[in-house]
Simulated scan of single mutants.
Amino acid sequence: FENLEVKRSLFAELEARARPDAVLATNTSSLRLEDIATALKAPSRLVGIHFFNPVPMLPLVEVVQGEATDAEVLRRATGFVRRIDKLPLPVRSAPGFLVNAVLGPYMLEALRCVEEGIAPETVDAALVAFGMPMGPVELVDTVGLDIAVAAGKALAGAGAEPPARLLKLVGEGRLGRKSGEGYYRWVDGKAVKGDGEEAAKDGLVAGLWRRLAGKRRPAARPVPAGLADRVLAPLLAATQRCVDQGVVADADLADAGVIFGTGFAPHTGGPLNYSKETGKPD
């Protein structure tokens, strides 16, 4: 997980060693640029260039403008992202920026469902059937449960508390894919799920590209009515909030960013377009 003091120390050293015209860029996924920049004599040099894993496969890169970021620094950072054949998404500095800010509440709601007794496989199947490339519980396991706890409060909103089962798993050292067990057991890099569960077996990238090609697979088992809507509701609300707060310039950019950054069901046109067309609250 990210350590603010370590980043401050690193960037202070980089500023002292780098050429005066060098751009200082951070790949932070959850820290505000303003908090890192307090260690710099010239905070205008700092910009965010936030990639998404796996970097070779996911095209989106958030280019993050802090309160002090110089316009020329921002232009150079955007140009760099284009030169490496990525899609730059301009965002303003805020916890989680756009993509992680919408993923945090989404994953938290999925874990709350599990806390209430709904099987992880059922939650994941509901969202894969909707059109997501990977279920949210499997995504948490993939990210790492310790990372989820460390970043969760900042990304999920004020008053959000980690689910008890999540804290228990972390306390036991069951951190998800990297430790071999979390909400799922992991064998050879794949989540082992319940009998007959096929809907959520696709990996994040394979599932995303399959759906971008217009192919969808239904859930392999019945899921409770309204389950997908419940888990998606915090994501829709967070996306609208990012537009309202100016984290991203407009709804079109927000929709594109969430599609390419999270794999949000491309056939919907993005979360805000989906909200508008279906009348779902955002």
Rank of each mutant, 00 (worst) to 15 (best):
P133M: 09
M134T: 10
M134C: 13
G135H: 12
G135F: 13
G135Y: 13
P136S: 10
V137S: 05
E138K: 12
V140M: 10
V140T: 14
V140F: 04
T142W: 13
D146N: 11
I147Q: 11
I147W: 13
A150Q: 12
A150V: 10
A151C: 06
K153F: 05
A154H: 15
L155K: 08
G157H: 11
A158S: 14
G159T: 02
A160S: 12
P162F: 01
P162L: 01
L166P: 04
L166I: 12
L167A: 05
L167K: 09
L167V: 04
K168A: 08
K168R: 08
V170L: 06
G171M: 02
E172D: 03
E172V: 00
E172P: 00
E172K: 01
G173Q: 01
G173C: 02
R174G: 01
R174H: 02
L175W: 00
G176K: 01
K178I: 07
G182R: 09
Y183R: 04
R185G: 03
W186S: 02
W186T: 11
W186P: 10
W186L: 10
W186C: 07
V187I: 13
V187P: 03
V187L: 09
D188F: 10
D188G: 10
G189Y: 04
G189K: 02
K190N: 13
K193E: 11
D195T: 13
D195A: 11
D195M: 05
A199N: 07
A199L: 08
A199Q: 05
A200I: 14
D202A: 15
G203L: 14
G203P: 15
V205P: 07
A206N: 06
G207M: 00
L208Q: 03
L208A: 02
